[in-house]
Simulated assay, not measured.
Amino acid sequence: MSYKTVKKDAFAEIEIKKSRFIAHIAEVKSEEEAEMLIKQVKKKYYDASHNCSAYILNSDQGLRHSSDDGEPSGTAGKPMLDVIAGAGLVDVIIIVTRYFGGTELGTGGLVRAYSGVAAEVIKNSTVVEITSARLMEFVIDYGLLPKLQHLLLELGIIIYETEYLEKVKISVLVTDEVSGKFFKELTEITAGAFTKDSAVRDEQVDFYLDKRKVILDFRG
């Protein structure tokens, strides 16, 4: 199972008829965390006309929430929510601060402004694909290493760490999609010497790739 989210906060700003729209995107993992960030932004931009927001959570049964914060109903939060959903992102919040420039934009103009700056801030962010897997560590003889490496390559299983000592200590990330075949073939290629119960470490983790480097993403 995998999903897309953002890492590291990002910002974008546009100006339309002297109104400034400042967008902030961030990763959030709970409704409480999202609401706390909204409060922080409202405190920072206390003199703004509006601080509109939208977020989608992967947890909490895929909770979706949006707020127009005083803008005409459906012209701010909902368009931002649609942009997040259209990008396939979860555990993400976008907050857009507006400083009114003195000219009304109309409902269509507001929808375009809020959805436009939301799309822009996503472009400025770092989108990653989070994947759930079992982090499994095995200690094997050097003679079995080529067979194991071939199996891992065949199944597309990522090697997280390898340590060459008296024996080889190898850690791999096994997803649900390939786990059944991996454990079956692991037993076969080692003539029963290794099974899934042979792992000296077996832990459920989330991970993502950053410039080909594997980053473990432990969820709180």
Rank of each mutant, 00 (worst) to 15 (best):
G106F: 14
K39N: 07
E33K: 09
Y46D: 03
D141W: 08
L63V: 05
A26Y: 09
V174H: 03
D176K: 11
G106H: 13
L173G: 10
V174L: 07
R112T: 11
L186H: 05
G108Q: 13
T126C: 03
R112P: 01
E33Y: 02
V41H: 00
G86S: 10
H150D: 13
S198A: 09
D217C: 01
G101A: 07
D9T: 12
L165M: 08
S171H: 01
V139H: 08
Q40V: 06
D206G: 06
E177R: 10
G156T: 11
I56C: 01
K184M: 12
V41S: 00
F207P: 01
A133S: 12
F138S: 01
G70Q: 07
D91N: 15
E163H: 13
A133T: 10
E185W: 04
I122M: 08
V96R: 10
S67L: 12
D206Y: 15
D68N: 05
K184Q: 13
D206L: 14
K211G: 02
R134G: 00
V178F: 10
V127M: 14
L173E: 09
G116Y: 02
V90Y: 06
V127Q: 15
Y142E: 02
V41M: 05
K39T: 10
S171Y: 01
E35A: 09
E188Q: 09
F183W: 15
N58M: 03
P72M: 09
R219Y: 01
R212V: 09
V205T: 07
M80E: 03
Q40N: 10
L110Q: 04
A113G: 03
I56D: 00
V96D: 04
I38A: 00
V214G: 04
E203R: 10
D202F: 05
V6H: 01
K78L: 14
K78M: 14
Q204E: 12
M1N: 11
F100N: 04
V92E: 01
A85P: 05
D210Y: 13
